[in-house]
């Protein structure tokens, strides 16, 4: 008979297996503490909404923002270590991630890129018609099919286009697409949805237009910051962005280096960013 082995062997297990178990771990932590969250992407995706045989390499959950602190305490109580913060995790400052030696990465989202209504209210809307999906033989709440179509399409938009779009949007019936558009309207996510489905030019006057154009078509860091600045609608938001623009992202530097960055690492990166910015400006001047 075959036997059983612990830890050392299973760490060599397929990433997909670890991801399934990690979803279950996070859900158990949520159940025990009354934390509201939804599982997104990967094994949380309902049948037919992603290519067969496609697997995620990390866990994505959307937490009710007012429950974030409880979730952080919960995941860190079982050995997860925070690696990026919400400010530095992405251009949308919407997620942070945690690492566990057994379970790998968990991305905790407080909002979803493209959704612009208040995050707590957005959670209510996305969770309103949630359904239960078994992941690793445990009950996990996931958004319903319409919400998943929207989430995957928005994800495709912010990733510059993915195969998710084929299943989540292109293959949807006109009625299903109408339902997704209605949900996007309720969440004030029309511009992001338009970016995902090739209708962005209909929103040229929107403050977030440049940001989504940058995300979907690419561009320099200078373009990115210009787009982020345009999308920041308050003076305070603009000031925070400008401050962040001057700083080196220590979290990402740590991941690149494989260790906590030293002062000299940060200084070296700062010099690199300045040189890159100067290079971009020079090429911009030459073009103009």
């Amino acid at each position: 008979m075959g036997g059983m082995s612990e830890e050392t062997d299973v760490r060599a297990a397929p990433v997909a297996a670890r991801v399934h178990l990690a979803h279950a771990v996070v859900q158990k932590l949520a159940d025990d503490r009354g934390i509201d969250l939804l599982h997104l992407k990967g094994p949380a995706v309902l049948p037919g909404l992603r290519p067969e045989g496609r697997h995620s390499s990390d866990v994505d959950v959307l937490v009710r923002p007012s429950h974030l602190r409880s979730l952080v305490t919960a995941v860190e109580s079982v050995g997860f270590e925070q690696r990026t913060s919400f400010a530095t995790g992405s251009v949308f400052a919407h997620a942070a991630n945690w690492w566990h030696d057994d379970w790998g990465w968990v991305d905790v989202h407080m909002s979803w890129p493209g959704v612009t209504i208040d995050a707590e209210r957005a959670y209510d809307v996305l969770a309103r018609d949630r359904v239960v999906r078994q992941i690793a033989h445990r009950d996990c709440p996931v958004p319903n099919r319409t919400a998943q179509r929207l989430i995957l399409t928005l994800h495709s938009a912010r990733s510059g286009g993915t195969t998710d779009l084929d299943h989540a949007w292109t293959a949807a019936t006109p009625e299903e697409q109408d339902a997704v558009r209605a949900l996007a309207t309720e969440l004030h996510a029309e511009v992001a949805l338009a970016a995902g489905i090739g209708e962005l030019e209909l929103h040229r006057g929107d403050p977030t237009y440049l940001l989504w154009r940058h995300v979907t078509r690419g561009g320099s860091r200078f373009d990115e910051w210009r787009a982020r600045l345009a999308a920041a609608t308050t003076l305070r938001a603009k000031a925070e962005l400008l401050t962040a623009a001057m700083r080196v992202n220590r979290d990402h530097l740590r991941m690149e280096l494989g260790h906590a960055p030293t002062r000299s690492d940060i200084r070296a990166r700062q010099r690199l960013r300045l040189r890159r910015a100067a290079g971009e400006l020079t090429s911009r001047v030459r073009r103009s």
Partner: peptide, 26 residues
């Protein structure tokens, strides 16, 4: 997981683990 040829199960007690691997006849 639409996975390999040998029967394999990965399990754990949630939330604290540890992960356990059962292969073949296990």
């Amino acid at each position: 997981l639409d996975g390999g040829e040998e029967p394999t199960a990965y399990l754990t007690r949630v939330p604290k683990g540890p992960p356990i691997l059962l292969e073949g006849s296990g």
